[in-house]
Amino acid sequence: MPQTLSLYVENKSGVLARVAGVLSGRAFNIDSLTVAKSFDPGFSLMTVVVDVPASLTEQVIKQLSKLINVVTVTCVSDSPAVVREMVLVKIYLPDEMRSRLLQEAEIFRARVVDSAPGSFTLEATGDSDKLEAFLGVIAAYGRLEMARTGTVAMPRGASRAVAVRNPSPKVAAGGPILL
């Protein structure tokens, strides 16, 4: 079951490799990983979608939290969150199909960002399920090339994307450790 983790990290060289290393060192496959500067340029926000058995998620979070440059780790999959991904998809299709494709794109609120004889490039945003559905539909129209951003996530409401790093005050007897 893929887990979406949000990491607030110091914006320093090598941090990405450290995070990736903790996951690869335990033979977990990363489905997607995005990283960019946070509002405070000294820090970055990383969203990692990683295929971890649910029973090991807590251990992975704790191992990632041990990295000196990682300030907080939150499992976004556990709580309500806005999750988005963008895809740029170029589709090669015969002229007579162009208008029908545009109708399909409209359904998914995809925008045309480039047009050339024999091809369109569309931009679509949504959660991964929506994008999979969109790609499934338009694949019927012709050959596709695509670039996906990977998932970015933001917890809903007042809950902070960056929780308290140190889990000790929240440890409950017998229960999971809440980060």
């Binding site: 251990q59 704790k62 191992q63 041990k66 440890v171 017998g174």
Partner: peptide, 18 residues
């Protein structure tokens, strides 16, 4: 002292990180 050691191999009833 290492929270990652708690529950890593064995389920624990009372973890104390410190």
């Amino acid at each position: 002292i290492d929270p990652a050691e708690i529950g890593k191999n064995v389920k624990v009833d009372v973890p104390i990180v410190g």
